[in-house]
Amino acid sequence: MAIELTRDKVREVARLARLKLTDEEVETFTSQLGHVLEYVDILSEVNTDGVEPMAHAVEQFNVLRDDAVRESLPREAALANAPKTDGRYFQVPQILESS
């Protein structure tokens, strides 16, 4: 049961990923992503009854570390890539939360 990929779905996914697509790009990606999905869909021909879903690609568990503090980055370094900062905070266009 192949997934029907529509232009609206592509626009929706692009919006969620904050990508701005032209109508032409929507056209291209609908077709290209559609092919990718079709290809992956070949997997659904395999009978997976009674097979546990795989949680991770490697057969490894319990990679944990001790609760120890190490030095963090200096603030200057933390803010180095910020498009806008006042030297203490990251600055972003005003967030509207309430009406």
Binding site: L64, R65, D66, D67, S72, L73, R75, A78, N81, Y89
Partner: peptide, 26 residues
């Protein structure tokens, strides 16, 4: 009072960094 002094590539979400679970937290 001291913003942005407790960060590193992992918690800043910088590319190439990898998270490792804190045993005590779990």
């Amino acid at each position: 009072d001291n913003p942005n002094v407790q960060t590193c590539p992992v918690c800043l979400g910088l590319p190439g960094s990898l998270p490792v679970m804190n045993r005590k937290a779990f």
